[in-house]
């Protein structure tokens, strides 16, 4: 896993998001081993329940921590985290589909922004790994309701999908399966986006 992650950085991604979906408490040592060799900004999430968890992850090399169910269960945690670590370190991860319905996602995103969150990681759960396009409707409605950056995730299968997500209002795009299973590269994506009028670091 560490090799694969180092390789992603070598392939010139801008940032990395590592989510542990096993529903267990964060395994700090393992995560640290994964993030330690990296230079790019890293967001870590999965099983984060408390300020103490966040502190350990940030101290161990994460640049940002993503809150999901713990934030929903106790929205005050978002504010506390922003006071302790700054908004730039607090990402709220919103799962649309199997998590929240689209309209719930909009109002929750607005509340997260009000409570100080620095970014929204917006994932369409039903599209995750399918590589047949982002949920543009959800991206459009959530990103127009907030002014903090929205990272669109779930469904990317082509460079055109990325362009569409940006045009729908996403501030960044998350790509998982497509960089593993298709003849697509982060650098190729940057060039394509730049050629289609989206300001991108090449």
């Amino acid at each position: 896993m560490a090799d694969r992650i180092r390789l992603l950085e070598r392939r010139d991604i801008d940032e990395l998001i590592i989510l542990d979906v096993s529903k267990r408490a964060p395994r700090f040592n393992e995560i640290h081993a994964l993030t330690d060799p990296l230079f790019c900004p890293v967001t870590v999430g999965g099983g984060v329940k408390s300020i103490a968890d966040m502190r350990r992850l940030l101290a161990g090399g994460a640049d940002k921590v993503s809150l999901n169910s713990a934030g929903l269960a106790r929205p005050d945690l978002i504010e506390e985290a922003c006071q302790k670590f700054g908004s730039q370190a607090v990402v709220v991860s919103i799962d649309v589909g199997r998590g929240l319905a689209a309209d719930e996602a909009i109002s929750w995103a607005v509340e997260c922004e009000r409570r100080g969150a620095g970014e929204i990681l917006l994932t369409s759960m039903d599209r995750d790994g399918m590589m047949d396009g982002y949920d543009l409707e959800v991206i459009r409605s959530v990103s127009s309701a907030v002014s903090i950056p929205v990272i669109a995730a779930g469904g990317c299968g082509s460079y055109d999908d990325m362009v569409a997500a940006f045009q729908a209002g996403a501030h960044a795009v998350g790509v998982g399966a497509a960089f593993q299973f298709k003849e697509m590269t982060p650098k190729g994506a940057a060039r394509y986006l730049a050629a289609h009028g989206i300001a991108t670091r090449i």
Binding site: E15, V21, R27, P149, F166, V175
Partner: peptide
């Protein structure tokens, strides 16, 4: 357990994040 890895492309306009990169 740590399986899904998502890599992100930020446009330069998103400010401090890409500057950090």
């Amino acid at each position: 357990g740590i399986s899904p890895v998502v890599s992100v492309r930020w446009p330069t306009e998103s400010g401090s994040l890409s500057a950090a990169t």
